[in-house]
């Protein structure tokens, strides 16, 4: 059985208890946080387990690379807790169960992963993907499964993720370019935390885009627009990839507005919160986030995750903000048409 590599001694010596103190959904001071966190560690009842919205952020808040969120999920599952309603949890588990319906391009040693998200395939078009494109994979067989953290079901991940890595390896892939941020998080944060071997190299698509843009430098016409960036939950698992957002923006002449809910203080898209906590908190999170973008004077909101896009695009468009996926933004900068549009 795969076990989480969690180092309790780090917590014993931790003064700030940032994992809980910084949490945007709980109001705990250091002392309270320390007490509650010890309860979580000792597998005792703690309101933390109920209050958690599964935003992933504490994975980033912990300065010691311990895995507080993964531990919370472990504890929730041990208790048989459901974060989302049980039927919704079942629906998600059933939805992504591999059923032999995966699709492949002409797979080579380097391949693009569209995870189990057809929208990513629509995005990956044009000159930036020309050379890599024939080689791609798409389907539940390659689905990263990280989403089950939201549903207190690490067991599903432990069961499926090793098979997923096997499936990818079987295709002869040596380097996987992850177009889904969460896949990259899965292979670079979650898999190591559980001792799951990833027998291929993974590249975040940000890095891929950045390099491709450099290759097409002559084709870039600076966009000269002010944009807000919608940071997604899985970005918390791999914050080391964040700098690429600014690197890319720099290349294509885009200005990232300063706003309250960016960086560590980002707000998630809210749709998972809708499922696990109901509409009131979800609406509040979405409203604060969009108000913030409007107030910051951004013309565009740039998305990393296609699901965040689906959750927020229409709502943003109604407030006069143009939603765009970062791949589409790059395409725009070299004179190509975006793939995702609202309505």
């Amino acid at each position: 059985m795969l076990a989480l590599e969690f180092d309790e001694t780090k917590c014993a010596n931790c003064k700030a208890v940032s994992c809980l103190v910084k949490c945007q959904y709980m109001d705990l001071d250091k002392d309270e946080a320390k007490i509650e966190w010890q309860k979580v560690i000792k597998s005792e009842d703690s309101p933390v387990l109920d209050a958690c919205t599964t935003c992933y952020a504490c994975e980033e808040y912990c300065p010691f690379g311990n895995h507080p969120f993964y531990l919370i999920v472990e504890r929730q599952e041990e208790r048989g807790m459901f974060t989302a309603p049980r039927p919704i949890t079942k629906q998600w588990i059933n939805m992504c169960e591999p059923a032999g319906k995966f699709r492949l391009g002409k797979v080579k040693e380097q391949a693009l992963s569209f995870c189990f998200i057809p929208a990513l395939r629509s995005l990956a078009r044009g000159r930036l993907f020309e050379s890599a494109l024939p080689s791609w994979i798409l389907g539940a067989e390659f689905f990263c499964n990280v989403v089950y953290l939201h549903f207190a079901k690490t067991s599903v991940i432990k069961d499926r993720l090793p098979k997923i890595t096997e499936n990818i390896e079987k295709q002869g892939i040596k380097e996987l370019i992850c177009l889904h941020d969460e896949c990259y998080g899965s292979f670079n944060s979650l898999a190591p935390a559980y001792g799951i071997k990833v027998p291929f190299k993974t590249t975040h698509y940000f890095e891929y885009l950045y390099n491709k843009l450099k290759e097409h430098k002559d084709a870039i016409k600076p966009l000269n627009v002010e944009v807000a960036y919608q940071r997604n939950c899985s970005a918390r698992l791999v914050p080391e990839t964040d700098h690429f957002v600014d690197d890319i923006f720099g290349l294509i002449g885009v200005d990232r507005v300063e706003r309250e809910y960016d960086g560590e203080n980002a707000l998630c898209c809210g749709e998972i919160i809708r499922m696990v906590k109901g509409y009131k908190l979800a609406d509040d999170v979405q409203k604060r986030n969009i108000d913030d973008i409007v107030n910051a004077g951004a013309e565009y909101c740039v998305f990393n995750c296609p699901f965040c896009y689906m959750a927020l695009a229409e709502k943003m468009a109604k407030r006069g903000i143009k939603p765009i996926h970062i791949i589409d933004l790059c395409k725009l900068a070299i004179g190509e048409k975006p793939a995702l549009e609202v309505g």
């Binding site: 459901f82 989302a84 309603p85 919704i88």
Partner: peptide, 8 residues
């Protein structure tokens, strides 16, 4: 009660 929920 976790017996039902809205699907996305």
């Amino acid at each position: 009660s976790k017996d039902g929920g809205f699907m996305w």
